[in-house]
Design a protein around this nucleic acid. Structure first.
Lengths: 290, 290
DNA sequence: GAATTTCTGCAATAGCAAGTGCAGCAGATC
DNA sequence: GATCTGCTGCACTTGCTATTGCAGAAATTC
């Protein structure tokens, strides 16, 4: 707990605050509030007005007025800003901090997904990842299923695996289509289920039945002990917190690329041949400009 | 005795929660709350009761009762605990990330895509992003086109925009299908072209013709001065370096989420209604387990 | 298949946190 | 040294958020 000395102006740079506190002329009490905020990031991010006031040894109204003097509507408004910066600060390394100045929903989403990817580095079990790669490489057939927006990672995996010459297909429909696709799976085949958030009945059923039929089931999902993960042989757990109402499949998408890279690392020769075959087809189809 | 025998217990260990959630018998709604908390650490640590309730799609009272069932006095009490653990978790793990010696293709891919996202923070022009959001919100119709693995971001954008009630569709096929889809575009419509790497003839043509017909064209692409970007009204430039042979659409995917968040920010009321309509349909279709 | 038990959601309530008018006081200025 | 300006703190008000009682809805058991 530091006694506030009449600070000249809000710390301009160098701190975790960035430009959250514009260089406005502040009064004595207001400087004490700012000092308290700068020195107690955690408190500043989560405490309520009265706690901040106590820490700065000023009256609550001074906290409110400080926030307003800095251009915010009030304390909650300022706190939101501080919280966002603090969270970025403690989890980011140096290069990121200076970027935080650009704020838009798109930038927020990118920064948020950076966190998801970092988390994924921890949540993905390397052994499960390797086991998944091994299974994919030795599969007689690979079926990737997912629904709605979670098709994103699934499409990456299926399309590019096929591009590399693996017998991979994607089924994004449910009902009868999913049923047909799953019914043909058996020993030696691999089913990849991509799903986040609340479990979809049909996907869980697909996983269970495929496993019963002797296929290897790989799950890319966000709940370590959810139904999808439990119905799988190898579960890759990805974080999925999104910036708005939806869960983010960004980390799952990156995992898909990682699996593909793992397949290449394991069977470079086979992949090289597969890619060559595919790209010669691309040439013959004359798909690309220039 | 107890009626349902729902989720056995919250995720025991390995996650950021530690033993914050004791292994208590939980009901259906309570498991949903716990799942939402586990999957959305940031939200869980700062959001208020109503936001958590919305995320878990339960009534606020269920959130309170979940907290009490877990041995806390109420939601604020549980939130304090979660917040503390989350902060410890991110500050403990974040600096560690570089030191982490887990090397697998999947981990390489994740770390690689972290860089892509960070670069995207710089390469995305905030004004273009806002312009894209504005166009999407006021569109009579939204058509999202992409091919192969680049369908990933496109599917996210189209599916979730439609979920939010916007008239969005995705066309992932080329040839006659792409032609039909594009031919109906005119003034007031928006075409979103997602494409990385070498330009596909048909996509460039689609963009040009749509623009000629008076539609607004948004490009999500990696070449700032490539044909796709030049044929567009608003270009969002994303880095796309992949860990192996393929370009990574991970950053593009995150951008898609960002656009959706931007649309919500601009028209919260409309989106809320749209989401409600969709989720009532989900309920009627009885898609989800438990 | 009926009854009982248990859960969920709604709505009213209680409690609290943020904001603001007012008065006193301190510092600045003439 | 007197006056004036304007900051600070107190106390009140307003608005909102967490909680809980209650009723309807599932679901389990007999």
């Amino acid at each position: 707990m530091t006694q506030a000395q009449p600070a000249p102006a809000p710390a301009p740079e160098g701190s975790w605050l960035g430009d959250a506190l514009p260089p406005v002329r502040l009064t004595k009490a207001q400087s004490r509030v700012v000092d308290a905020l700068v020195l107690n990031p955690k408190l500043a991010s989560y405490a309520d007005l009265s706690e901040i006031a106590a820490k700065a040894e000023v009256n609550g109204s001074s906290v409110v007025r400080t926030a307003q003097a800095l251009g915010y509507r009030g304390w909650p408004d300022l706190q939101r800003e501080l919280r966002a910066r603090y969270l970025v600060h403690i989890s980011a390394t140096a290069p990121l901090t200076h970027l935080v100045e650009v704020r838009s929903p798109v930038h927020d989403s990118l920064l948020h997904d950076v966190e998801n990817l970092r988390e994924a580095v921890e949540s993905i079990d390397p052994e499960a990842a390797q086991a998944a790669v091994d299974a994919l490489c030795s599969a007689k057939r690979i079926l990737v299923v997912a629904q709605g927006s979670y098709a994103a990672p699934a499409v990456v995996l299926a399309h590019l695996a096929a591009t590399m010459g693996y017998p991979a297909t994607f089924e994004g429909r449910s009902g009868v289509h999913l049923a047909s696709a799953v019914s043909s799976l058996g020993p030696g085949d691999v089913l990849v289920v991509v799903h986040l958030w609340r479990s979809l009945r049909q996907l869980v059923t697909a996983a269970r039945r495929a496993k019963e039929a002797g296929a290897t089931v790989i799950a890319i999902t966000d709940l370590r002990f959810g139904p999808v993960a439990r119905a799988s042989d190898h579960a890759l757990i990805v974080p999925s917190e999104g910036v708005y109402a939806f869960q983010s499949a960004t980390a799952a998408t990156s995992v898909a690329y990682g699996l593909l890279a793992g397949m290449e690392a394991k069977e470079p020769e086979r992949v090289r041949e597969g890619l060559e075959r595919t790209s010669s087809l691309w040439r013959d189809f004359d798909l690309y400009e220039a």
